[in-house]
Amino acid sequence: MTDETGSTTSAAVSIVSARKDYGRAAVGRPEAVSDVSIRVERATIHGLLGPNGAGKTTTLKMLLGLVRPSGGTFTLLGRDAHAPGARSNVGFLAEQPYFPMQLTASEVLRLYGRLARVPRDELAAQIPSLLERVGLEGRESTTLARFSRGMLQRLGLAQALLGEPELIILDEPASGLDPVGQRDVRNLMLELKASGTTVLLSSHQLSEVEAVCDEVTILDRGRVAARGDIDDLLNVAGQTSVRARGSGGLPESVRAIATDLAVDGDVMIFSIPDQAIRRVIDDLDDSGFKLVSVQPKRDSLEEYFARLLENPAPGGEVQS
């Protein structure tokens, strides 16, 4: 059985032709999401990117039953996402999560653990270890009214991990965290993936997405603007990036074909066509340059993202 994304339905997440039309209630454009299809393979980290108002959060809310879709089908771990029991093995961290503020950290985790149907004895064991995992050890009895924004974010991560779900959906998980916290979240996502957990990550932090995601879907104005393997999206076809150390200018034969030339001290960085690699290396050797690296040219996700949104393809979708 295949869906519109050309795939079988055994994916961790499958969204096909999702649509949300707010009609007259809309503040901006009536259709917040138009024909969005996303497929997330199991045991991968999938990034959902897009500028503000692109439809990322609405899409996630439709998937989780928080917003009623105007159209489309939503599948979680092979089941209809809106059927009873379908979300029992799914953890979710909302953007800037908030909790009942008069409860303590362990009371909050006990609540969400029971909602996730984690047996009580397992829950008692999981709570301290999860708090330690997110850097909140020793805070079991602290009332949440005393928590900082970053501590609430960490607690949100802990509640998403309760019951060791097969799929975790994270909406801006690094929001409100300091650089060390952001690094911890990245490492946590990679650990989850290594243990076979699927992560669907919605984020504005492109460096975070680039560092951890296997695949991305980029939304713009409620439509899929691009999707695919992150390496395929970012590698610039037919171009190789060369870094070489040496004094003086590049040989004339190299300068004639080099593009995007940049100089960092005595290191020159430039791009050349793939078919000229052998000749360029020989010419650099002959001119006394020392090669530092030769690798496929790759955009940063930031560059790719900016270019994509500045020049959207007609019809709104570019696939790798």
């Binding site: 989780l64 039953g65 928080l66 009873p84 029991g85 379908a86 979300r87 029992s88 799914v90 979710f92 909302a94 953007e95 800037q96 999560p97 908030y98 909790f99 009942p100 969400y112 909602l115 996730a116 149907r117 949100g156 509640q159 959906i169």
Partner: peptide, 14 residues
């Protein structure tokens, strides 16, 4: 407003 309800209803809670 504070999205507290999301953490509840995103789970298997009617």
């Amino acid at each position: 407003e504070r999205r507290t309800v999301f953490n509840v209803l995103a789970r298997d809670v009617r």
